[in-house]
């Protein structure tokens, strides 16, 4: 089992969710985050105050998957989130020790949805 954490552009979220849905990846967590990836600063001015906005709005996806689904999930995200411009984001893949499904008490492979590759 792996935990896939992807940081993507907010305006690619719909495309990514669509791609994940088509790949039959269903369990996931989405949050709005602020990030910095060395992009050129955006300048904003409010009356006399000029600021450089260093933190960009991004979306973080966290997806726990069984081993056969790791590559499917990654390629779905990468293909859907890609624009080719600086700041497209990153995908991190981590080992997961345990997973528990609270309702049924299922553990590990049995608890990540979907458990079997199609």
């Amino acid at each position: 089992m792996k935990l896939i954490v992807a940081i993507i552009r907010p305006d690619r979220l719909n495309e990514v969710l669509e791609a994940l849905y088509r790949a039959e990846v269903t369990g996931l967590t989405v949050s709005r985050v602020l990030g910095h990836g060395g992009e050129t600063d955006r300048v904003e001015t409010y009356r006399g105050t000029t600021v450089k906005v260093e933190l960009q709005e991004k979306v973080r996806l966290e997806i726990g998957v069984s081993d056969p689904f790791v590559n499917v999930t990654i390629s779905a995200i990468v293909a859907a989130a890609h624009t080719g411009e600086v700041g497209d984001g990153k995908v991190f893949v981590m080992d997961v020790e345990q997973v528990h499904r609270i309702r049924t008490g299922e553990r590990d492979e049995g608890a990540v949805t979907p458990a079997v590759a199609v």
Binding site: L34, H36, D41, R42, V43, E44, T45, Y46, T49, T50, V51, K52, V53, E54, L55
Partner: peptide, 15 residues
Amino acid sequence: HGEEAYASGEGSILV
């Protein structure tokens, strides 16, 4: 416009 309607100011560096 170089402005946000609902800016939080977080992560903004004063020039």
